[in-house]
């Protein structure tokens, strides 16, 4: 009895009274512009939203009466559904906009589309576009908050955030952590957001790809390029395997799918050379058997489905914060 009482006494860690951080950005366009403090603030805020998805009532009234528009000019399942769920869980109304079934197919410009939507009374625009910088353009056309859900080869900040959130759940301190981003980096906005975010939090980023899939301007990025996966895999703490984006690349970037898989794919065989507790990530959708073997994707080191769950929490946090910045602006 006495022992049980003592056991019960172990107290959970209490929040220390940390200095208050004020979030001031009404747009989230990329992770390159964010400070380390801003990044940490989003990631910490997201922790508070994770619990909502686990309850029986998966909803909070926080954004009641707000309207979020999913303005998608490119195909997406995961990101779009994730944003829709995130907005719904905060009680916002969601307007789904798909370019293919809209006036865009009749020649309407992005600016006009956005201004028409704004005239209906919207608060937050989540935009995905094939042109890098499209979200930035929108911030100059309308007053609503703009969240970049992927623009060309530029950035996909919420994916970068959810990747980093997922790493932090397993390794709270990112400083000195070695993260390899492997594969089609040239065409990957996910890679760019990860590079900036990880760098700001102190991780060491390695890019692993054939020369044809390395991004241009790599010398200006805080990364170590590497053309031989096997040379570095043993030192890595995290392996983020990117999807080979067949829809974006020509046939000439690597000789054959089989060769790519043999040199850069995460196979069961290659995993034997990695650290025992290496974290395996993939932004989805998977090309099973190409950049990652099924057994690895579904194996014990994989955090791929965790990334998807965390995506909803991170997006809830971002929706919440951009709205808070508007509240701040109105009070001034």
């Amino acid at each position: 009895m006495v022992e049980k009482t003592i056991e019960k006494r172990s107290v959970k860690t209490t929040t220390k009274n940390t200095p208050k951080f004020i979030w001031r950005r009404k747009h989230l366009l990329g992770l390159q512009d964010l400070s380390r403090e801003e990044l940490i603030h989003i990631l910490d805020t997201a922790k508070g939203f994770k619990g909502i998805s686990k309850r029986s009532v998966k909803k909070a009234p926080t954004l009641r009466g707000k309207v979020v528009v999913n303005l998608f000019f490119e195909d997406s399942t995961r990101t779009r559904n994730s944003f829709t769920l995130a907005a719904s869980r905060l009680s916002a109304d969601v307007l789904e906009f798909t370019a293919k079934t809209s006036s865009v197919s009749k020649g309407e410009t992005l600016r006009d589309t956005a201004r028409n939507l704004e005239a209906m009374g919207i608060d937050i625009v989540v935009i995905r576009h094939s042109a890098g910088g499209a979200p930035h353009l929108l911030t100059r056309c309308i007053d609503a908050c703009i969240i970049n859900a992927g623009d060309g080869y530029h950035e996909h900040p919420t994916q970068g955030l959810l990747d980093i959130f997922s790493i932090r759940e397993l390794r709270p301190d990112l400083s000195g952590l070695k993260v390899a981003i492997v594969g089609d980096i040239a065409h990957s906005r996910v890679a760019r957001s990860n590079i900036w975010g990880l760098h700001k939090l102190g991780a060491e980023v390695y890019l692993v790809a054939p020369p044809t899939l390395m991004p241009s301007g790599i010398e200006k990025m805080p990364v170590t390029p590497c053309y031989n996966f096997d040379e570095i895999i043993g030192q890595m703490d995290v392996l983020n395997m990117l999807r080979v984006q067949f829809e974006r690349i020509g046939s000439s970037v690597f000789p054959s799918v089989l060769e790519y898989s043999r040199l850069f794919g995460l196979t069961v065989e290659r995993m034997k050379r990695a650290k025992k507790d290496v974290i395996v990530m993939h932004p989805g959708p998977l090309n099973r058997g190409l950049e990652i073997e099924s057994e690895v994707a579904d194996g014990p080191n994989s955090t791929i489905l965790q990334q998807v769950s965390n995506g909803v929490a991170v997006r809830m946090a971002v929706l919440f914060l951009v709205n808070q910045a508007v509240v701040l602006e109105k009070k001034k």
Binding site: K8, K20, T45, K50, V327, K330
Partner: peptide
Amino acid sequence: EVECGALDTTLYRDDINQMGTHQPTVQTT
């Protein structure tokens, strides 16, 4: 037997859209 937990009420506050510089910090429940 006494259970103990912590509740964060930030997302349920009625002044969430009026707080300005007193921006609340969302914590875990």
